[in-house]
Design a protein around this nucleic acid. Structure first.
Length: 809
RNA sequence: GCGGAUAUGGCGGAAUUGGCAGACGCGCUAGACUUAGGAUCUAGUGGGAGACCGUGGGGGUUCAAGUCCCUUUAUCCGCACCA
């Protein structure tokens, strides 16, 4: 078979027959299968793309044969940092390099032979897409879900530019090696925290991997407790959040995040130098280090005290970097006796340690971090921790010093980027009118081509006068645009809504249509997106629902993560390790079906694993065997033999067993076992081929036809070619998926394992349906078993139907 | 550090979710066909002569554990500006 020729042949047929095009008329039978779109990189498709898209396309083809109207779109997440960095390095404009990369990728994606509906293609960097990304921003702004506040960025003082976390290695700028500091800028945020509770609750109803749901749950990080107000000696008030109000009498100090505004305000003259030094030090430290529990806790007394509202005690205020300003209130109470961090901190700085919880099982060690019985807490002694948590807050609620509160670890989503290659933020800043949203009729705010993106201290767009200078839409006076662009996660937070209506020039999507086609029935992509992209998309869906555009709550009903294909050395593929395996040579030599089939067979789909060349050859062998059998069968004349004897029954069992298993495995993305079942069916067909005497040729040919249909989703070009040679009419993907005949799977007798005292002894044949009495009879009739059991008393007989018998003597 | 996962023959991986560990394939061994084989076909293949032993290590629950519990080690992913 000339692989290259048949690939071209069938791809042309599919295009002509519009096999991949979604027909909206059949929306009632829709199946929306979405793969995470790709970032257009310079190096064609890598194995990761193949692994995501190839097997998933087989799943889609399987669904099509099952009678669904499938929709499988593809597009490009085309904005982002790498193109801009590439431009800084080479001078090639991000738009030019991105467009070229997209062309290359489109070509290789098409060669893959996947059923992508290219009519629905989207590219997030095109005006007709980012116009609607900007629309989304404005809608969120109108709804009060977009707001501005100060937030720190990584700042390289020598390059005078904002750095992504990725560009900071060990606290230094990856370009020039200078120490990177935090710098505050006013930036745009989306209020995802407003949906924290719903995002958490919504997880329950989703058909997602449990681990992903768990990760999102922990990321959202709900904790219930109280917010307690403390008053500094200056009279300034601040709040701390705690889940352990039962330990309030044990507070011996409080901590403010170094970034907390009160730190600057309250620091005494004497402590000023030390505190400023500490704040500077903190600005050089990343959050992972700050939160590390193994790192030594540091802090500095700010020379000012605060009053504990429950007992009026004055306690020192520290600034310490293990408290983050972005979490909770940016302030915590320190209870050394009942918290490990606080215990270490108090020991280091010589702070008092007062025990206020007693263990119930005589544990006297400190810190004691479990619940127990309250002590040293006048008015609450003897209560359990649980009772005291409520009672103490309740008492403070009366005087307005506390409230019950649920806190989330989830933070609002920072969407401003001080970069060029992104969707401009559609906002105008006017001295008179303040922040003015760009009128919808003026969208898109076009990203200008001619900009200087070499870093020199300003956002690239800020230097472009033609872009920046505008008239205020409200007062008509001089104003300027927002110089920042949107995080690319904003683009990808709604793309699944655009696909089904990709060419709509009047609105981002037609709500009526979208409400029929969405939610996505199956979403397939990497697990690395568990907490960010997947959470952002859920948030945007809920927000658009509340704004009135959508009538569903969750964008992705069912989710699958593909694993990672590693290099042959078992390490993650990377240029620096030199272990990258490119798919192209394999496609050239063996064809796309073989590569796809190997990816399906050689790995557990959700696990991935190391690449291995030998497996590829095994697949070639498998397809060759099928092809030889096809040739042989096509040369075999039909006969009138309709007998169904033992051999035919075995074959029918194999055929129906394969249908049942492959059907189930494809549905569950268990591609490796699906292919294994296909191989078993081929083995059964080969076996039937070798029997002597008159064969039931009709049955033989039909069984083979079933094999080809089951194989078709996994080796589409190959299967079409064989199907055609067998006289199949039209594309095999328009044929109906085989249906299992359960009656062929019913066996008269089954082999059952027999254990004595849980040790394997022998195997016996048993009728499928037996009573315990019959089992006993058969056991004693068995020669081997009866000798072993002679003179022993059977205490217990455990029968697992059709599997195992355990005789306890 | 925190959060999440993974660990099964020489290798990739199966195991109806507590019931015969190693499906299927690679590799290997022997044989057949062949001038030839890196083609094809047939048979065998966890270890051990054996009783038995075997699912990263150690403990436990159970008639029964790869699967459940405790503990430990190694590796991988994410940690909010890579996408």
């Amino acid at each position: 078979m000339d692989i290259k020729k048949i690939e071209k042949k069938w791809q042309a047929v599919w295009e002509k027959e519009k096999l991949a095009n979604f027909n909206q008329k059949n929306v009632d039978k829709k199946y929306y299968c979405l793969e995470m779109f790709s970032y257009p990189s310079a190096a064609k498709l890598h194995l990761g793309h193949w692994y995501n898209y190839g097997p998933t396309d087989s799943f889609v083809r399987y669904k099509k044969m099952k009678g669904f109207e499938v929709f499988q779109p593809m597009g490009f997440d085309a904005f982002g940092l790498p193109a801009e960095n590439y431009a800084i390095k080479t001078g090639i404009h991000p738009k030019d390099s991105t467009e070229q990369n997209i062309l290359n990728m489109e070509q290789t994606l098409k060669e893959m032979g996947a059923m992508f509906d290219w009519n629905a293609e989207i590219k997030t960097c095109n005006e007709d897409y980012y116009k609607w990304t900007q629309w989304l921003f404005l809608k969120l702004y109108e709804k009060g879900l977009a707001y501005r506040k100060e937030a720190p960025v990584n700042w390289c003082p020598s390059c005078k530019t904002v750095l992504a976390n990725e560009q900071v290695t060990n606290g230094e700028c990856e370009r020039c090696g200078s120490v990177v500091v935090k710098k505050d800028l006013t930036q745009w945020f989306f209020k995802i925290t407003e949906y924290a509770e719903e995002l958490l609750q919504g997880l329950n109803g989703l058909d997602w991997p449990e681990k992903t749901k768990l990760m999102q749950k922990n990321w959202i990080g709900k904790s219930t407790g109280g917010e307690i107000e403390l008053t500094a000696e200056s009279g300034d008030k601040f709040k701390v959040f705690t889940t352990r109000a039962d330990t309030l009498f044990g507070v011996s100090y409080v901590v403010l995040a170094p970034e907390h505004p009160l730190v600057k305000k309250l620091t005494s003259a004497k402590q000023k130098k030390a505190v400023e030094e500490y704040i500077l030090q903190t600005s050089k430290t990343n959050e992972i280090d700050r939160l590390s529990s193994s790192r030594e806790k540091t802090g500095v007394y700010i020379g000012h005290n605060a009053i504990n509202p429950i007992n009026g005690k004055s306690v020192p205020i520290y600034a310490a970097d293990y408290v983050l300003y972005s979490y909770g209130t940016g302030a915590v109470m320190g209870v050394p006796s009942h918290d490990e961090r606080d215990f270490a901190f108090a020991n280091k700085y010589g702070l008092p340690i007062t025990r206020v919880i007693k263990g119930t099982n005589g544990n006297d060690d400190l810190p004691f971090v479990e619940d127990g019985i309250i002590m040293n807490s006048p008015g609450f002694d003897g209560m359990t921790s649980e009772e005291a948590r409520k009672a103490i807050i309740n008492q403070l609620v009366k005087s307005g010093k506390a409230e019950h509160k649920t806190n989330y670890r989830l933070r609002d989503w920072l969407v401003s980027r001080q970069r060029y290659w992104g969707a401009p933020i559609p906002v105008i800043h006017c001295d008179k009118c303040g922040v003015v949203p760009v009128p919808y009729s003026d969208l898109p705010v076009k990203l200008p081509y001619d900009v200087e993106f070499t870093p020199d201290g300003e956002s690239p767009l800020a230097k472009h006068k033609g872009f920046m200078n505008v008239k205020c839409p409200v007062c008509g006076g001089d104003a300027h645009r927002d110089p920042d662009t949107l995080d690319t996660f904003v683009c990808s937070s709604w793309y699944y809504l655009r696909y089904p209506d990709a060419h709509n020039s009047k609105e981002p999507f037609n709500p009526e249509l979208i409400n029929k086609i969405l939610p996505v029935d199956k979403y397939v992509g990497g697990a690395e997106h568990a907490c960010m992209h997947l959470l952002y998309a859920r948030f945007i869906t809920k927000a658009l629902r509340d704004i009135g555009y959508l009538n569903f709550d969750e964008p992705f009903k069912s989710l699958v993560h593909q694993g990672t294909i590693l290099g042959p050395d078992g390490m993650k593929m990377s240029k620096s390790k030199g272990n990258i395996v490119a798919p192209d040579p394999y496609v050239q030599e063996y064809g796309s079906d073989v590569l796809r089939l190997y990816l399906m067979f050689g790995f557990s789909y959700t696990e991935g694993g190391p690449w291995n060349d030998d497996g590829v050859k095994a697949i070639t062998k498998f397809l060759d065997r099928i092809e030889r059998l096809a040739i042989k069968l096509n040369a075999t004349p039909n006969n009138k033999n309709n007998t169904v004897g033992k051999n035919e029954k075995d074959l029918l069992y194999a055929v129906n067993y394969a249908i049942k298993c492959v059907d189930k495995d494809m549905e569950e993305f268990a591609f490796n076992t699906a292919v294994a079942r296909l191989m078993e069916l081929l083995n059964a067909l080969s076996k039937y081929d070798t029997i002597d005497g008159d064969k039931n040729v009709n049955l033989f040919k039909n069984s083979f036809k079933t094999l080809i249909q089951l194989l078709a989703p996994c080796a589409p070009h190959f299967a079409e070619e064989i199907w055609e040679s067998l006289g199949g009419k039209g594309s095999i993907f328009n044929s109906k998926y085989p249906v299992c005949d359960e009656s062929a799977l019913v066996l008269d007798e089954v082999e059952v394992a027999v254990q004595i005292n849980s040790k394997m002894r022998t195997k016996i044949m048993l009728p499928s349906q037996v009573t315990e009495e019959q089992v006993k009879e058969i056991i004693f009739a068995d020669e081997k078993l009866s000798t072993e059991l002679a003179g022993k008393e059977i205490k217990k007989l455990i029968i697992v139907p059709k599997r195992l018998i355990n005789i306890i003597v």
